[in-house]
Structures are given as structure tokens and as C-alpha cells.
């Protein structure tokens, strides 16, 4: 049914006026960082990240390692959360959630989409964060799946200050080999303004994204 690969590539080659595959790899346009870079490693990255993440509509709460478990429980209680799926590998937090009477499903026990659909909140860490835009970077690994930050109405994400990169150019300075099946830049709660331009949060993904920014410095 489909035109085969050789034929397809041939037609592209012909369109470009070539009869043979190019023998040497073309040199791609250099990315001039003096133009394209929007944040520098020497900037105050946690401050920049917090400011820009807030501008994207995410709620940023500053905390420390010691106070993290309490900050998490406070946040969930304030939000009226009854059940969570947690991919946070942290026994102290699991204990705190249990004490607060929040039904916490350990991701390692139930990794189904069904569990993600049912939970009031998804708790995850992040693979990195970007000061440039205020984005979270998540990746699919056995330790976290792509439905968890997406399906529950609330996503609570723990970000360590040391994980914050300056610019997208730093995230992709080297090709990742092999790349994860999914890398997601999450930059705010799910939103739309399709109906008469009225902004509404929580279309398909979470209505709220809360960032617990752990900065002991």
C-alpha cells in the first residue's frame, strides 16, 4: 500500500536536484547562543524559575528537606485531597501522608492508568526544571509514568533547587542516548481559551500544578 522507503526518498532527492545520496553529512546551521539563549547558568536560577513558573500559572511553595513532608501534607489538606498516587520514593513522606489520613497509593504497587484516573492528586519528582521558562521536565522511566502528572486534577511536584537548568539549550546540550520514550516539558496547568477566548484551567490535564521547591541554601 505505502510507497516504499527507497522510492519516497528518491522523490525527495530528485526534488532537490540530486541523483545520489549526499556522501558527506551537511553541517547544520550553528545555534548562536548570543541570540537564542534566554537564561544563563550564572543567573539566580531558583529565583528565576520560581518567578517564571508562577507566571505560567503554577503555584510555587518554597521549602527545605526537613520541612518537605509537612509542606506536602499541608498542601494536600488545604486542597481537600483524599487520595493520591505517589511516585515519590520517600518513606518519611509516606508516613506523614498516612498520619494525615490521606489514602496514598504507592506508584510501585499500582502503576495503572485506572489508578491515575481515580486519584485526587499525582505526586512526582522532576527530571529537571528550566529557569528560562519556568517549565518542569518529566521523563517516563519505570519510576514514573506519563499518565501520573496528567490524569489527576492536581499535580504536586517536588523540585530540588539543584535540578534547575538555565535554558532549554542546556537541557539538550548533548543528545540523550538512548532517549526515554517520553520527555515532557510541563509549563502550567492544562488550559484552553477556545470558547470565546475565555481562559479555563483543567481541560484534560490538571487544573492546578503545585511545585514544592526544595532549597536548603
Amino acid at each position: 500500500m505505502s510507497s516504499n522507503k527507497a522510492q519516497f526518498l528518491d522523490s525527495i532527492r530528485q526534488a532537490l536536484g540530486r541523483t545520489q545520496p549526499t556522501s558527506t553529512a551537511p553541517v547544520p546551521t550553528p545555534v548562536d547562543e548570543s541570540i537564542a539563549r534566554l537564561a544563563r547558568p550564572e543567573d539566580d536560577l531558583p529565583a528565576l524559575f520560581a518567578e517564571r513558573a508562577a507566571k505560567l500559572g503554577m503555584e510555587v511553595k518554597h521549602t527545605t528537606h526537613d520541612r518537605l513532608a509537612k509542606a506536602l501534607v499541608d498542601e494536600l489538606e488545604q486542597s481537600g485531597v483524599r487520595s493520591v498516587v505517589s511516585a515519590l520514593d520517600n518513606p518519611a513522606m509516606a508516613g506523614a501522608l498516612c498520619n494525615a489520613g490521606i489514602e496514598a497509593l504507592d506508584w510501585r504497587v499500582d502503576r495503572s492508568m485506572a489508578a491515575c484516573y481515580a486519584a485526587d492528586a499525582g505526586l512526582t519528582g522532576a527530571a529537571a526544571a528550566l529557569a528560562e521558562t519556568g517549565s518542569l521536565v518529566l521523563q517516563s522511566t519505570p519510576a514514573v509514568g506519563r499518565g501520573l502528572p496528567l490524569a489527576p486534577p492536581l499535580h504536586v511536584v517536588v523540585v530540588e533547587a539543584g535540578q534547575i537548568l538555565a535554558d532549554m539549550l542546556d537541557l539538550w546540550s548533548q543528545p540523550v542516548q538512548p532517549p526515554p520514550a517520553w520527555q515532557g516539558l510541563i509549563s502550567g496547568p492544562s488550559k484552553t481559551s477556545d470558547i470565546e477566548g475565555v481562559l479555563i484551567q483543567g481541560v484534560h490535564g490538571p487544573e492546578r500544578v503545585v511545585i514544592l521547591l526544595v532549597d536548603d541554601a
Binding site: 517549565s135 501520573l148 515532557g184
Partner: peptide
């Protein structure tokens, strides 16, 4: 500054991936 979701997909789910 960027769309809310930027999904970068490389292949189907890996061995060990849940979703």
C-alpha cells in the same frame, strides 16, 4: 513563552515503562 505541554516522543513504551 512555551506551550503548556511539550511532549517529546521517541518510540513506543520501553520495557519497564508503565504508560
Amino acid at each position: 513563552p512555551i506551550t503548556v505541554y511539550t511532549d517529546i516522543l521517541t518510540g513506543p513504551k520501553r520495557v519497564g515503562d508503565a504508560h
